[in-house]
């Protein structure tokens, strides 16, 4: 035992400090109330995207407020990869004791098994749905100094010249919306795929593309700074966060385009547990502090209970299957 002691001791010392600091934090969150009934230990939440990403931040925020109503803590586990497929698959195959739940992102979650039925090892029936949390409508966006001021202008202009349209790439729900819009309005865009919204927004603001289709919540800051114009949003009703922006339908484009973030458990979880969690999430989403936070974070909240959510997604799924059989995008 000679020199290495220094390093050894220091490593131990550092690690113990860091752990001490953090375990305190973790203990503060543990509130073991009501032993014997569900839940009596932390619930694991699988998030199919990277820590720090949009879905992750949304999940952690609502779960943080939900602990109060659930009476237990949540442990978020990130299982990113393959556009969420890895995480969704592992949620579908998780133990059904109610202590593993996860975030789902329809329509992305629905699209994987529809587009590659032989490779993807889950489908909608493998989940028991708990609640929807966020419904983020799609949006057509142009640069602030663009000549285009409405959806109508956009399609007019598209008839005259080929507009460069930034979107999320083939196979995404944006691609489907674009294809249907092109069919309805008899136009054709020059579609430019981008990985992720940020580079696409940068390209739009720099004038490298003419128009962008994305999710409304992703461009709220730029919208508020008036650096971009949002032509229309894909929800049924106008968005609270963008009250002056019309919907697709109001502008004569008979489509909806919504990205959702919800919570689901693997199939087989007891009905009581599903209802308990759904109820707790409902209360959380009525919590004023949470609503304030969500507004600051530009999260378009939209609660749907287990029954309603199931019906909605089943209809959505049928619609997607139909479109896919007609013509893959």
């Amino acid at each position: 035992m000679k020199k290495p002691n220094y390093f050894f001791l220091m490593l131990m010392f550092i690690v113990s400090i860091v752990i001490a600091g953090c375990s305190e934090e973790a203990e503060g969150q543990d509130k073991p109330e009501g032993k014997g009934k569900y839940p009596d230990k932390p619930i694991e939440v699988i998030v199919a995207f990277n820590a720090g990403g949009g879905t992750d931040v949304a999940a952690r925020t609502i779960l943080n407020y939900a602990e109060k109503y659930v009476g237990s803590s949540f442990a978020v586990i990130n299982k990113p990869g393959a556009a969420g497929e890895i995480g969704f698959t592992s949620l579908a195959g998780a133990p059904d004791n109610g202590y593993t739940i996860g975030m789902i992102n329809p329509p992305t979650t629905l699209l994987h098994p529809i587009q590659r039925p032989n490779e993807v090892k889950y489908n909608l029936d493998d989940f028991s749905l708990i609640a929807n949390i966020v419904s983020d409508p799609g949006a057509f966006v142009v640069n602030a100094d663009s000549q285009i001021n409405s959806l109508e202008d956009l399609f007019e202009e598209a008839k005259k010249r080929k507009l460069n349209m930034a979107y999320g790439g083939p196979g995404t729900s944006e691609a489907l919306t674009l294809r249907r819009a092109e069919e309805m309005k008899d136009v054709e865009f020059n579609k430019i795929p981008f990985e992720g919204t940020s580079p696409a927004v940068a390209a739009l603001m720099g004038g490298h593309v003419d128009v962008l289709i994305t999710n409304a919540s992703e461009v709220i800051s730029q919208y508020e700074d008036k650096k971009i114009k949002v032509l229309a949003v894909g929800s049924e009703e106008k968005m609270d966060l963008m009250p002056d922006v019309p919907t697709y339908k109001e502008e004569g484009l008979d489509l909806t385009q919504i990205s959702m973030r919800g919570i689901a458990a693997p199939k087989g979880v007891s009905k009581e547990q599903v209802e308990f969690l759904a109820d707790a999430l409902k209360k959380t989403m009525e919590d004023e502090e949470f609503i304030k936070k969500a507004t600051e974070m530009a999260l378009p909240l939209d609660y749907m209970g287990p029954e309603e959510y199931k019906e909605f997604l089943e209809n959505y799924n049928d619609e997607l299957v139909e479109e896919f059989e007609r013509n893959p995008w």
């Binding site: 820590a51 990403g53 931040v57 925020t61 940020s198 580079p199 927004v201 730029q222 508020e224 600051e296």
Partner: peptide, 27 residues
């Protein structure tokens, strides 16, 4: 200034800003 993260870390940093109710941009 623009809400456009220049690299992977700052993309995650954006999540940190949002959680504290700070949306990038002029505000």
């Amino acid at each position: 200034t623009l809400g456009i993260p220049g690299n992977a870390v700052s993309a995650i940093f954006l999540g940190g800003l949002l959680i504290h109710g700070l949306r990038p941009g002029a505000a």
